[in-house]
Amino acid sequence: MRLFLALCFLLGIPSGAPEIHSLKYFVTGASNVPNFPEYVVVGLVDELQITHYDSNTRRVVPKQDWMNKVTEEDPTYWEDESDVSLRDQQTFKVNIEIMKERFKQTGGVHIFQKMYGCEWDDETGEVNGFHQYGYDGEDFIVLDLKTETWIAPVQQAVPTKHKWDNDKEDLAYWKYYYTQICPDWLKKYVEFGRSSLMRKDLPSVSLLQKTPSSLLTCHATGFYPDRAQMFWKKDEEELHEDVVRGEILPNHDGSFQMSVDLDVSGLQDEDWGRYSCVFHLAGGQEVSKRLDKRDIRTNWKTNDGGLSPGAVAGGVVAALLLLIGCIIGLFIYKKKQPQGFRATNTSETS
Rank of each mutant, 00 (worst) to 15 (best):
G129V: 02
F130N: 09
Y135M: 00
Y135K: 01
D136T: 04
G137I: 01
E138V: 10
D139F: 14
D139Q: 15
F140V: 00
F140E: 00
V142C: 12
V142P: 06
L143N: 06
L143S: 01
L143Y: 10
D144M: 10
L145S: 05
L145W: 05
L145H: 13
L145T: 05
L145M: 12
K146Q: 15
K146M: 14
K146I: 13
K146A: 13
T147S: 15
T147C: 08
T147G: 08
T147A: 13
E148P: 04
T149C: 09
T149Q: 11
W150Q: 05
I151R: 11
A152I: 14
A152W: 08
P153C: 06
P153E: 02
V154C: 07
V154Q: 06
Q155H: 04
Q155L: 08
Q156G: 01
Q156P: 01
Q156L: 03
A157H: 07
P159Y: 05
K161I: 08
K161C: 06
H162F: 15
K163W: 08
W164D: 00
W164R: 03
N166Q: 15
D167Q: 00
D167V: 00
K168M: 05
E169L: 08
E169H: 12
L171W: 00
L171H: 00
Y173L: 15
W174S: 02
W174K: 09
K175T: 10
Y176T: 10
Y177N: 09
Y177P: 03
Y177H: 13
Y178F: 12
Y178C: 01
T179F: 05
T179W: 04
Q180L: 09
Q180K: 15
I181W: 09
I181S: 12
C182M: 06
C182F: 00
P183E: 04
D184T: 15
W185D: 14
W185R: 15
K187Y: 02
K187V: 10
K188G: 05
K188V: 14
K188Q: 13
Y189L: 14
Y189M: 15
V190W: 06
V190M: 11
E191F: 07
F192K: 02
F192E: 03
R194I: 12
S196Q: 11
S196R: 15
S196M: 12
S196F: 09
L197A: 03
L197K: 02
R199F: 04
D201L: 12
D201N: 10
L202Q: 04
L202S: 05
V205A: 01
L207N: 03
L207S: 03
Q209C: 03
K210E: 10
K210A: 12
K210T: 11
K210H: 06
T211Y: 07
T211C: 00
T211W: 07
P212E: 02
S214K: 07
S214V: 07
L215K: 13
L215R: 12
L216H: 06
L216K: 06
T217M: 10
H219D: 12
A220V: 03
T221G: 11
Y224T: 03
Y224E: 01
P225H: 05
P225M: 03
R227P: 01
R227V: 14
